[in-house]
Computed example of a mutant assay.
Amino acid sequence: MSISLPPSFSFTVPLSSVFFIGLAGGADSGKEAFCRVLIQELQKNQVIDSNKALLLHLHDFYKELSDEDRVRASNGLYNFDHPDAFDWDLLALVMDDLKEGHLTNLPKFDFATKKRTYEMRLKDLEKPRVVLLEGIFVLYSQRIRELLNMKLFVDVDDDARLVKRVARKVSEPNPDSVDNILTEYVRFVKPAFDDFIQPSKKWADIIIPRGIENVTAIELITSHAADLLGRQQQPNSTRPSRLNSPSVLQELKSAAGSTTSSACPSPRPNSRTHSEGGTRPGLISSSVSGKGVLGGSTDSLYKPVPE
């Protein structure tokens, strides 16, 4: 049985000394737990030191809420499961700073107060070797995708994610009622998955069924990351890259071309229509109506990703 890789997969070693791994998936699919296990495996296999890995959470990059929006949020009328709710500019700035080794502020979103604080990453701290970014929309924004060296998607059954969500929320210090949890799920969480998250799976280099239970996937990702990071540590080496070998690349291209149906994502289109909205140059906006951050119909610049 041959293994084919998607044409969108990058075979080149990243120019930056920081290796960015993005992990997307539906809410309550175990993304954070998967990232922590992956970090442990990288450390156990001596790919990185314990202080060389940094885990970022997309939910820490929620936009600052106004007083009015905080009232809406407390009444369950603010949609946190929508691209409009995130500060993409701040996320890109932090990732750029980490890549360049600059002093940077890491945000922390407090869900109790709905406010954002900052934690300074001191200059004398060691520069991270690997940065993992996890969150539901990690693969939605083209701007963020272009900063990632490896793109992963955790694929967990809808019912399993809902069960985990209910169990998590009823066990919190100030638990929601089951009725409120289900209402929020139907109003915001499920539509977000159908319109934005599930379609973004096509941008993934590797799709991981069953999430953290998939031990084989963890081992394969660790091995591949170790291969890339090991070669990256020798920028002055004249040893040719195994994946840059003409014969290997030809075999990979032939295998990809001969595969007519696969669980791997389709080639990355040149269109930028799936980027985050706004006035940034080169981005195409849409006036497609949909559920916005306020829970009603809105002419959001963020449109569902077409299948």
Rank of each mutant, 00 (worst) to 15 (best):
M1E: 12
M1F: 14
M1W: 11
M1A: 13
P6W: 03
F9P: 04
S16P: 00
I21G: 00
G26Y: 06
A33K: 06
C35L: 06
L38M: 10
L42F: 05
Q43I: 10
K44V: 06
N51S: 07
D60V: 02
S74H: 08
N75K: 13
N79I: 09
F80R: 02
D84H: 10
W88F: 11
D89C: 02
L90M: 09
L93C: 12
D96R: 10
E100A: 07
T104V: 15
N105E: 13
L106C: 12
K108Q: 11
R116N: 02
R116H: 05
R116C: 01
E119K: 11
L122P: 01
D124W: 12
D124A: 14
L125D: 01
P128V: 01
R129V: 05
V130D: 01
V131C: 02
L132C: 03
F137N: 02
Y140H: 15
M150F: 14
V156Q: 07
D157E: 12
D158N: 10
D159W: 02
V163M: 07
V163P: 00
V163S: 04
K164R: 13
V166I: 15
R168S: 06
V170Q: 14
V170G: 08
P175D: 05
P175M: 05
D176V: 00
D179R: 07
I181E: 00
I181C: 04
Y185R: 00
A192G: 13
F193E: 04
D195L: 08
W203H: 15
I207D: 05
I207L: 01
N214K: 10
I221R: 04
D227M: 15
G230S: 02
Q233A: 15
P235N: 06
P235K: 08
R242C: 09
L243Y: 13
S245I: 03
P246V: 15
P246E: 14
S247Y: 15
Q250R: 15
K253F: 09
A255M: 14
A256S: 15
A256Q: 14
S258N: 13
T260Y: 09
C264D: 11
P269V: 12
S271R: 04
T273Y: 09
T273K: 12
L283H: 13
S285N: 13
V288M: 10
K291D: 02
G292Q: 01
L294C: 11
G295I: 05
G295A: 14
G296P: 03
S300L: 05
L301R: 11
Y302T: 04
P304A: 05
V305A: 00
